[in-house]
Design a protein around this nucleic acid. Structure first.
Lengths: 149, 149
DNA sequence: TATTGTTATACTCTATAACTATA
DNA sequence: TATAGTTATAGAGTATAACAATA
């Protein structure tokens, strides 16, 4: 095996491990959120609603289509967790948590933080090492090379 | 904010970053495989078929239900990439790549290695740091605590 | 004309349940 | 009776396209 092959093999092995850890983390999130009886996507949205946000913006942050946000907003509204409030530009609707929504949001945030923390398996020193590596992996994406995804 | 909160915040931040990198890696895999016009699941299976393997075993390695493997095997067979060969125990069917399958497998492996390597953004030294951290994240899972997933 | 959000719909991924054949 | 694989089907998650209201 050439050095070149060995490099790719090692990179591939690391990638598989990283993807695996990522999937575990997502499963942990789902488990943490399950007791609240809301779908994972809805939970993700509620956690982002720190402040009222246009639906369009939420779509951007959740990396999904706008039409999908309509469904999430419907579910949140049904449960009385959110209100659609018109923005200045009256095409825009802001999703604003109700008091029940804020309360649930805090409880979910707590549950997600407490349980399910894959990261807590590492020592402080290890986490301090990991942070910069992940930053490098995220930052060094040449934006123009990413195509349409 | 207490130290305790700060710890969870930091852990959560790292987790989100790691999940994000993992998703990019998966998108890269999909992009690398797209030119071959086979679904991602089928590509993953073909890469595992280094040697003929019982369908059951494949289900284990892909972490999915057996019934799902039937579908994948059908698609592979349609394309003439795989043959179902009976095992000693005649309940078992082994999936064995045909010569066309082996050839495609090599091409896919090459494409996956070449393109899409998030990991190649790191230096050798950084990868050498990351490996042990990922190993720790994966190894320190208390097996009995993982429940049914 | 361009943009926000909505509706209807369709597609992909994946699991569950009931079944056949072997063991 | 238990196991490997198959079939039919159903559900979750998500996107696309056409549309209404507003800019």
């Amino acid at each position: 095996m050439t050095d070149h092959d060995a490099l790719f093999d090692e990179a591939h092995r690391l990638t598989r491990m990283l993807v695996h850890v990522g999937e575990e983390a997502k499963a942990d999130f789902a488990a943490a959120v399950a007791p609240f009886n809301i779908p994972v996507g809805v939970a993700r949205a509620i956690l982002l609603l720190d402040a009222p946000a246009p639906m369009r913006e939420l779509a951007g942050r959740l990396v999904c289509d706008q039409s999908y946000i309509t469904g999430i907003a419907d579910k949140l509204e049904e449960r009385g967790l959110v209100m659609r409030v018109p923005g200045e530009d009256r095409r825009i609707k802001l999703l604003a948590l109700t008091s029940a929504g804020t309360e649930l949001r805090d409880r979910i945030a707590g549950a997600v933080a407490q349980q399910a923390m894959v990261m807590l398996r590492l020592t402080d020193a290890e986490r301090a090492q990991l942070g910069p590596l992940l930053t490098r992996l995220l930052d060094s994406v040449p934006p123009e090379s990413r195509g349409t995804r």
